[in-house]
Structure formats: C-alpha cells, structure tokens
Design a protein around this nucleic acid. Sequence first.
DNA 1: GTCTATAAGGTGATAGAC
DNA 2: GTCTATCACCTTATAGAC
Lengths: 200, 200
Amino acid sequence: MTLNTETEQKIVASAEKLFYRKGKAGTSMQDIADDAGINRTLLNYYFRSKDQLFEAVFRNAMASFVPNLAAMLNSEMSFEDYVPRMIETVIDAMLENPQIPIFVLQELSSNPERMPQIIKEMGIDSTVAERKMKGEQWKELGNQPDPRQFMLNLLSLCIFPFAARPVVTEILYNGDNDAYIEAMKQRKQLLPLLLKKFMI
Amino acid sequence: MTLNTETEQKIVASAEKLFYRKGKAGTSMQDIADDAGINRTLLNYYFRSKDQLFEAVFRNAMASFVPNLAAMLNSEMSFEDYVPRMIETVIDAMLENPQIPIFVLQELSSNPERMPQIIKEMGIDSTVAERKMKGEQWKELGNQPDPRQFMLNLLSLCIFPFAARPVVTEILYNGDNDAYIEAMKQRKQLLPLLLKKFMI
DNA sequence: GTCTATAAGGTGATAGAC
DNA sequence: GTCTATCACCTTATAGAC
C-alpha cells in the first residue's frame, strides 16, 4: 500500500484505528472522516468504496506479520535459534499493534470462505514447518511431537494473550496495563523454555 | 435467561447464530427476523431494543462457560485432577459452541470498559487460582511457575485454537474439518501432559 | 401477540460547482 | 482535490388496527 498524499495517510490511519476497534460494520465512513478531520466524500474519492478501503486496511494488517513468519519459516535454523526468534518476532509485532490479532481473527471468522485465497496470496506453505520439524537440526532434541499440534501451541501461547488483552489485563493483572505489558515481554524468554520442554 | 414463548426462543436462537458470526453492528433486526421466520416488530415487542436483545445474547454466551470455570476454581482438587478436568470442561464447551470465544473477545475488545462490571457480575476472583497454585496439593510437583503466566498458558492453549478456527483448519489441516475436530479432541489428553511439564 | 403503516434518521455513493 | 447537494436505500423504533 503506497500512500501518496497526506490526506490519504490520514484516512488510512483513522480507518485502521476504527476498523481495528469496532470492525467493518461497526464503523461508518462518516466516523472515519470525522476522526481524520476531513470531508466524507474524500474517502470515496481516494478509495472509491468502503469495501475497498476496508480491504486495504485488512491486507495491511495481514502483511504486517505474515512476511516475518514466512521468512522465518524458510530459514535453515536449528530449534535453539528458530523458536526463540520466531516467538520474539511474533510478540514484538503484537506489542506494536495489539489489536491486529482480534481484528484479523474476527474478519476471518465472519468470512471463512476468504481463507483459501488469502493463503494463496500470502504464499503460506504449512508443510514448511512440518518438514522443518523432521529435519536434522531438530532431531537432537529427542521426542518429536506432532508438528501441527506443536505449531498450534506455539501460536496459541504467542497470540492469545493479545487477542484476550482486556480480559487478561483486568482479571490477571487487576487492570494494571504496565504489569500486563511487562508480563508479555517476559514471555519472550519464558515461551522458548516451555516449548523446549514439549520436545523432552 | 428464561425463554417463555416459542417465538421468543426462535428469536434468541437466530440472534445468537447471527451475532456470533457477524457481530452486533453486522447484524440487523431484519436479518434476525428473517432467519427466525417472524415479523420484525416482534423483536421489539419481546426485547424492546436491539441493545437489549444483544445484551441477552452476550450474557448468555458468557454464562455458558464462566460458571463451569468458577466451580472448578473453587474446588479442592490436586493438580492431577484439577488441570485435566478444567481443560476438558473448557474444550468441551468450545466444541459445542466454537464461535463463542471470538464473539466474546471481539465484544470485550471493542468495549474494554465493560470488563470491571462483568467481573463483578460474574463473581470472578482471579486470586483463587493463585492461592490454589500455592496450596499443598500442588507443591509435590516441584518447580512453581508464575501462577498468572501458568493460567494464561492454560487458557491460551485451550481457547486460541477455537478463536482461530478458520485459519487453523485451512493452514494446518488443509481445510479438513473432521481432522480439525479430531485434533481438538486429542488436545484434551495432550494439554495436561504439556502443562505438567511446565512444573518440572 | 401479531400485524401494517409510518416516522425520523443514518448509510454509502455520486454529480457537479469551484 | 475538495467541497455542497442530493440520491435511493436501509436502519431502529413505535403507534395503532385486529
């Protein structure tokens, strides 16, 4: 997404903010225009329709973490390097934009029929992780868990605490946001240790 | 929520189905009436407003798993009994109604200010889990992890695979729904084993 | 309880002036 | 590029007949 004019940037910034929080149907073009401080018809001038504006935001959200994962998946690292770096990449991405996971999951949950095309476009190959786990660099760790369950555990442990942020902050950290953030940062060290135990 | 008439039941059933999938803003009263096969004004007759109908559905969704967890939390079981049963309870609840986690998380993410009141109403006490983990029944397991991180890991591993259902099914199981369900059932046995390793 | 008719307002989108 | 005016449509909600 190349953003030419200043107006265009303001539109996308406001659209992201509101779509992330209230979803597509919960956000009107007027809401976005008001937030950006511009006339509503300019949204149509730049993006032609609400659908196209939303699509731009959605693709942007996906693109903010998929390429990182893809690059990581295709590398030739051992478990010791691979898992910690992958976890750090994912958690850092979430720390920067905590609303993205729930936004993406909600959209894909509403429109699961979009999945096949998205996978195609993003160039995701699920068998990479599977082949990697059967590779030589991982053998030394001993017990080989089901690669899909392992992958699912890794993603669950990384992403869920952000998708459930308000609940986690309020229930486990008594509403203390700083304590929540600190706990998320600690997980960058904690999760590799735990996942390694899955292999033993 | 006591459902008196047949019409009332049809309304709630359709409202749940549509709110779960498309959210509050993405579902119109007309959509619900059409799905239930009744006149639209009857929704207002029975629930007065869209807000009140949504609230009924939302509280119902929360109530479908919170009491189970609360009862479990307050019991005096050892790790060996407690964790597996809690996992089974949560996963079984999700298997029965897979859309609830993303529905609830999206609503709370849109309106985090609702959290304090919800916690109060539901009678959730986060310190119960913490005290439990420091209790005698858990000591024998050796290393004591941070109770909050342990709780977060448990919930992540149980809930995320359902919140991310379309992604998981498509990417990890090539769109094979039966394989996905089978994997979720396996996790009832798998997760207790993994979580026990967190204590060693 | 269930319907029709209607109200008042918001929605996305476009035509056309500047 | 940016604005005003306007379009047809959809939204929630209610009044009143039966």
